[in-house]
Design a protein around this nucleic acid. Structure first.
Length: 594
RNA sequence: GGACGCAUAGCUCAGCUGGAUAGAGCAACGGCCUUCUAAGCCGUAGGUCUCAGGUUCGAAUCCUGAUGCGUUCACCA
């Protein structure tokens, strides 16, 4: 890396000029801001203590040294305490040349030494369809997994399906009571949506019961516990855990409907998994683990036989692990699943993509696993992302104020189709091709809209203002790619030679584009380290923007000078490739034409 | 109440381990298609980086406090 080279030269320089060793913090080299001349800038302020001279003078001295002793440096200028270094065009051209045939520029291949990383994401409940919040989760998980792999790790995508529990029993109970045998076939409804309706119905009826009890003079708190519907659901859960056949059959049937629906939504979103775990198959492991720990006195069983762990010494509260009737709670399965996964994969890191409303839960999970004696518990990382909110606040599935995933995707496709038609962009395509392209653009807009914001921040989604297709958007970058591909196609048709000559003259804008390409690897690395697809999205935007300026200002295909033309085509091709590969890491496809 | 998180242009967001005059997009206004795709390019306007202290040669960035918003502490998931 050029920065490393410069840093080494700088320490050499300080030693030679002033006889001092540089500390980490004093050796500061960063990219030169656009408005100044140069490629990299040495911060001279921290060095004046060593040189005991004015910043400008120090900068001059260092500049001269580097000019003479660093082959890559061909020029320098000093502005206040900033020493701006210019790197030779040959350096950039040689870099481009060396990457010309590499289709995986910026990517780091995995090896035997790579860390094994599990990325858990999606984690749906099988009692309701996916909504916009889940979309963010899925896009983040898929993308982060891809980024980690591109950074050289061995990555496995996993999904824990929360297919059992009191919430599932609620929709089952509602179906049993009021379903009249409804199923996806006889209602024509998508399975997950159908089941979701019963979940909402349960809540509605339950609230009625609570209100009635309150009206009869019972305190709200007790009314909530005593409502017959809830008691019935609880009884159903006990029967489920006791393998009561009728309940198990109902459960299997309704879950099958949901899975079919989920599969369709996953396919539309373009996400997938290496291994799917089901809570119904892992919770027993957690339960056993907890009971064993009770015997070892790690956890405490109360008189009503509920099991608790006291975490007050860790700055947390007391946490229930098993209910008094012996049934499992949410964290029970998480314990079992984590242990199973360590057995299955022997992971070095385990990333959980889960909303920030569960920050506390993951703190607890980590401490509980540590208390159970698992040293690998330290390697658990909670990728805590912000909620997706509507202008009127949080989405609540029970209250129906959610943006449904399937609907949103359909609407995006409609908007993209209408826009293409208005612009007359896809007129020359076959129906099949334009359908595919519109879909690609729609998903590009949606995915980019979500992934470009820092994962930890809340996203505000206003359904009234549809997602943009112009400006800093997915389609903008897809368009840039399509433009380049079109150029390259013409170049092939015209039999244009694209052999890169490293002596070609290059402009500032061209150099800047090469630098962008050069930075791809470190952007991937940083995005992996920070678990942030947003960094990659912003990188793509910068690249596309610069390319469009270049494309607008400079002739490429029509350039008369053959060397320049060849160089510009090679550069263009590389930009297209990097955009495509980077977008691929965001789970977004790019079209050849649009 | 305790814990955690967030606060940057009218709106939506960038701003890397502290560095030069805080950047984009949208919306508004004004230009650019007989020339490689105008889903594009250029320009104008828009800011007390919530507030108050502190550390530093230097703070949107780090520390402390305040304010506002959000989340969480369930025999919910």
């Amino acid at each position: 890396m050029i920065v490393k080279i410069l840093e080494n030269k700088l320490s050499e320089c300080i030693k030679s000029l002033y006889g001092a060793e540089l500390t980490q913090g004093q050796n500061q080299i960063q990219e030169t801001k656009k408005e100044f001349e140069g490629d990299y800038t040495v911060m001279v302020f921290p060095l004046v203590k060593i040189s005991k001279k004015l910043p400008e003078q120090t900068a001059e001295e260092i500049g001269h040294y580097l000019l003479e002793n660093a082959a890559e440096v061909i020029k320098f200028n000093v502005v206040k305490g900033f020493l701006n270094l210019s790197i030779s065009p040959e350096f950039w051209l040689k870099y481009l040349k060396s990457e010309e045939k590499n289709e995986n520029t910026g990517f780091c291949a995995s090896s035997e030494q790579s860390r094994v990383i599990l990325v858990e994401y999606s984690s749906p409940n099988t009692n309701k369809p996916l909504h916009l919040g889940h979309i963010r989760n899925n896009l983040l998980g898929y993308s982060v997994a891809g980024i980690l792999a591109a950074a050289g790790h061995k990555v496995y995508k996993t999904n824990i399906v929360n297919d059992r529990g009191i919430h599932i029993c609620k929709s089952m109970l509602a179906w049993q009571k009021w379903g009249n045998g409804a199923n996806p076939e006889n209602t024509g409804k998508k399975g997950d949506h159908l089941v979701g309706e019963f979940y909402v119905l349960f809540d509605k009826e339950y609230k009625k019961q609570v209100a009635a009890l309150k009206a009869s003079g019972i305190e709200e708190e007790n009314a909530k516990k005593e409502a017959p519907l809830l008691q019935e659901a609880q009884e159903m859960l006990r029967q489920w855990e006791n393998n009561q056949p009728e309940i198990r059959n109902l459960w299997s049937m309704m879950n099958a409907w949901v899975y079919k629906g989920f599969d369709e939504t996953y396919r539309k979103m373009g996400v997938d998994f290496d291994k799917i775990y089901y809570e119904s198959e892992t919770f027993m492991q957690g339960k056993e683990e907890i009971l064993q720990a009770v015997e070892k006195n790690i956890f405490q069983q109360k008189e009503d036989s509920s099991v608790w762990v006291d975490l007050t010494a860790d700055g947390l509260d007391e946490k229930i692990l098993l209910r008094s009737d012996g049934t499992s709670v949410y964290i029970t399965q998480d314990i079992g699943t984590a242990i199973l996964r360590q057995q299955d994969f022997a992971f070095d890191d385990h990333v959980y993509v889960v909303g920030n409303e569960q920050d506390y839960h993951f703190k607890v999970l980590k401490v509980v696993l540590q208390k159970l004696g698992y040293t690998w518990a330290d390697s658990i990382y909670h990728l805590s992302y912000g909620m997706v909110e509507l202008p009127e606040g949080k989405m609540k599935s029970r209250e129906g104020t959610v943006v449904d995933a399937d609907n949103l995707i359909d609407e995006m496709v409609q908007t993209a189709t209408a826009m293409s038609k208005e612009l007359g962009k896809l007129d020359e395509m076959t129906t099949e091709e334009s359908t595919k392209t519109n879909y690609m653009i729609a998903m590009g807009a949606l995915k980019y809209f979500i992934l470009k914001v820092d994962p930890k921040k809340t996203i505000l989604f206003n359904p009234k203002e549809s997602i943009d297709f112009n400006g800093n958007t997915g389609p903008f970058i897809q368009y840039t790619h399509a433009r380049i591909r079109s150029l390259l196609k013409k170049a092939v048709e015209q039999n244009i030679n694209i052999e890169l000559d490293t002596n070609t003259e290059i402009t500032e804008k061209e150099k800047s584009l090469i630098k962008n390409i050069y930075n791809f690897a470190s952007v991937i690395e940083e995005a992996a380290k920070r678990h942030s697809p947003a960094l990659l999205a912003n990188y793509c935007y910068e690249m596309a923007k610069e390319y469009n300026q270049f494309y607008h200002d400079i002739k490429i295909l029509t350039e008369e000078n053959e060397e320049k033309r060849a160089f510009r085509l090679v550069l263009s091709e590389k930009v297209a490739q990097v955009l495509k590969n980077a977008f691929n890491l965001l789970g977004i496809d790019v079209p050849e034409r649009m």
